[in-house]
């Protein structure tokens, strides 16, 4: 596990043959920008993971595990290669800068992460819930959000 490969100063690991870059939150925007200049011009996917139940997990040296992780999949069409970024986002300050100005296609994806995990994206043009109703309370894909917590009530049923 003594990988020393680095990309723009961020540790690179291999996950089942796929390249994964662990990016510190402070460098996130700059690294994505630098990667776009390297050819990774398309952001295919942006999603989140709540590691509430798995605080201890294997991460490269220098990367401290936090509760949330935002995972970004980038694509270099010319060289036909893919890259995955993993960014640690602490629960007490769940904020990341938006990628909207670099990859406008992340607009809906960031809204989904915000909706589902409560990770906010600063400077996002329209940070509202996207899948849940606007008055919903809580973020459903968080691990402390129980399944079936909302009681189903039927009109006119005898309880």
């Amino acid at each position: 596990m003594s990988e020393t490969v680095e990309l723009h100063g961020c540790p690179v690991v291999d996950s089942l043959g796929q390249t994964v870059v662990h990016v510190p939150r402070e460098a996130y925007l700059d690294v994505v920008k630098a990667l776009a200049d390297d050819g990774y011009t398309m952001c295919v996917d942006l999603t989140g993971v709540d590691y509430l139940e798995r605080p201890a997990r294997t991460l490269p040296a220098g990367i401290a595990a936090e509760r949330f992780e935002v995972v970004v999949n980038l694509l270099d069409m010319r060289a036909r290669r893919r890259l995955r970024l993993r960014v640690q986002v602490p629960a007490e300050d769940a904020v990341l800068p938006t990628l909207f100005d670099l990859h406008p296609g992340t607009e809906a994806m960031e809204r989904e992460v915000f909706d589902m995990f409560g990770v906010a994206f600063t400077e996002h043009p329209d940070l509202t819930r996207i899948l849940m109703p606007e008055d919903w309370i809580g973020h459903p894909l968080r691990k402390d959000y129980d399944v079936g917590r909302i009681p189903v009530q039927f009109k006119g049923a005898n309880s």
Partner: peptide, 17 residues
């Protein structure tokens, strides 16, 4: 940034879609 953060913590009013 703090504005976004406070809204996300409160979790009730994410604004109009």
């Amino acid at each position: 940034a703090t504005d976004f953060y406070e809204r996300s913590v409160a979790g009730t009013d994410e604004g109009d879609q």
